[in-house]
Simulated scan of single mutants.
Amino acid sequence: MPPGPTNPPAPQDPLPERIGQLYFRVALPLVGAVLLTAVPDARPGSLRVLLVLTALTLVTALLHALLPVRWHDLLRRTFPGVTVAFVLGVALLSGPGGLPGDPQLLTLTLLLTPATVLAWTLLFMDEPRTGRLYGLVLTGSAVALLWRWQLRGLQPQLTTHTPLLTLIVCLTVVLYGVAFADINRRYRDGERALRRDTLTGLLNRRAFDEQARASAVGSWALALLDVDHFKGVNDTHGHTAGDRVLRAVADVILDVLAGQGRAYRWGGEEFALLLPGPPAAGSADLTVRVAGLIEDIRAEVARRTFTGGQRVTLSAGLSLSPAGEPLQAAFERADAALRRAKADGRDRVVLAPAPPRPAQTP
């Protein structure tokens, strides 16, 4: 059997979407509103810049609100590039007869550039290199704009060190953003580690308990698997060999499941498998499909040879649960079926009886 993944697929991280909601639906509209208040007092030269920048922020915020969620990531990646191109365009067009620098544009550049660099760092919390790249490119574009204003004498309020100070401030913001992203990554890695079994890489009992509290809706199947006579493996070949057997059994489970469910190490030599979302719990088709998966796991483990020629077998109890039933009830039935598989001779899969249907009131 070809090797499968060593870990169950991780759930999608919701943080980028949450930060995107905050940035595109709160921050950008507020910036656009502030820019609109500056339009009546704008000089003719800077009016065009303000109008284009205002339209860019408000249209982007509107698109984020109207587009389906699947398009949000594309918008997140496109907007920084368009913004950088706009700043570079203003820098290139600044000159005699072109776009002059004035106090309004200088104030906007000095205030918005560091804030935007920080916002982009957070916006790409899941891809810190991308956020860092966008921040550095925007920093370079803004500094080039300020330097061009200074070089051509278009901005009398611009001191000699303004471009350099802007560069230092923005680079400091980038570094702080990178540090914050690293702290967040370490926190998330630690949270994931708390839900993983360090030996097998499977989800652990804590993750199972969390899933149990969230599984009161939908229908699913639950299987409990136990390595038969595992104490004899440890006694004969040592605990290191026993650990290798457990890792190999976990690999078989993941190979056969192939993403169709979640696998947990319940404890010791016991494993729990949760296959959520079957279309009709208790139906004959579902019974055949799920029982076939568990039987494939049992048969593959029985075929393999482990350390020192050792062979092991699995006993399994399987429970099918209707929608709305607490996971604990299905667990108790699967556990009883597992005990029956052990009592009947081991190396077998036993299906628990279906739960009694609630009495219908006339």
Rank of each mutant, 00 (worst) to 15 (best):
D344L: 15
L74E: 09
R70A: 12
A284Y: 05
H237F: 11
G81F: 00
F306D: 03
A329Q: 15
G131Y: 06
Q211P: 02
W220V: 06
Y134M: 10
L105T: 14
G131S: 09
G308E: 01
L47Y: 05
V217K: 13
V137R: 07
G153F: 10
L165G: 01
D228M: 06
G20Q: 04
D209A: 14
S46G: 12
G20I: 12
Q360Y: 01
A263Y: 04
G89S: 13
S315E: 05
H64M: 14
V137H: 06
P128I: 08
T162C: 01
T54I: 06
V173N: 05
L274M: 05
T162N: 00
G259E: 09
A284M: 04
P128C: 03
L58W: 05
V350W: 00
I253T: 14
F24A: 03
F208N: 01
Y176Q: 14
W71Y: 11
G95T: 09
Y23V: 15
T305M: 05
L47I: 07
R188S: 04
R188I: 05
F124I: 08
I168D: 07
A291L: 09
R206A: 02
S283Y: 00
L338Y: 02
P326D: 07
D189W: 07
R311A: 04
L286W: 10
T113E: 02
T37M: 12
Q104A: 08
D189G: 06
V143T: 11
Q104H: 07
E17Q: 13
T83G: 00
V288Y: 01
V143L: 10
Q310I: 10
Q155W: 05
L164Y: 06
A352Y: 03
P40D: 03
L74M: 07
L47F: 06
A27P: 00
F180C: 05
T6E: 07
L293A: 09
F271L: 10
V117L: 03
G177Y: 02
L56C: 00
A248V: 08
L56Q: 15
L15H: 02
G292Y: 06
G98C: 05
A33S: 03
L50F: 05
Q104T: 15
P80Y: 06
A302L: 08
T78W: 11
F124Y: 13
H72A: 12
I168C: 10
R76V: 05
A85W: 01
T305S: 11
R348L: 06
P100R: 12
